[in-house]
């Protein structure tokens, strides 16, 4: 069955990059460019996995993650933080906020979709 990925990312180029790589692997890809929109979209089209940028305009990724985790319908969906934060400790913070995984940018085109598949499988 085709899996749905929701990408919450405010940078269009980075969104296209992930979309391109995932659509090649037959994912259905949806995008939201802010945390608010992301939560709305997630509620209407319960995705199989959410890819979440940490630095978003307005509500940051950590807050988005806590809100997603606090919403019963969305609480079980795996969330992968995809971030270019070079600061040590951000991975730990993301995990503490409820992330299932953390992918550091720049993403590796070779491994990206494989990593996402692995996260999906590990949640089963």
């Amino acid at each position: 069955m085709q899996k749905t990925v929701l990408i919450i990312e405010d940078n269009r180029d980075n969104y296209f990059l992930m979309q391109y790589l995932l659509e090649r692997e037959d994912f259905r890809v949806m995008g939201a460019d802010s945390g608010w929109l992301g939560i709305e979209m997630a509620l209407y089209n319960i995705p199989d996995i959410i890819l979440l940028d940490i630095q978003l305009p307005g509500m940051d990724g950590y807050t988005v993650m806590r809100r997603l985790r606090a919403t019963p319908e969305l609480a079980e969906i795996p969330i992968v933080a995809v971030s270019s934060y070079a600061m040590v400790g951000h991975r730990e913070l993301a995990m503490a906020c409820g992330a299932s995984g953390y992918i550091e940018k720049p993403i590796d085109p070779d491994k990206f979709s494989e990593e996402i598949q692995a996260f999906l499988r590990s949640q089963k």
């Binding site: 940078n11 980075n14 990059l17 391109y20 720049p106």
Partner: peptide, 13 residues
């Protein structure tokens, strides 16, 4: 890093 991510990513593709 954000713009560089897409430069490196798309070059990779």
């Amino acid at each position: 890093r954000t713009p560089l991510n897409s430069v490196i990513g798309f070059t990779g593709i």
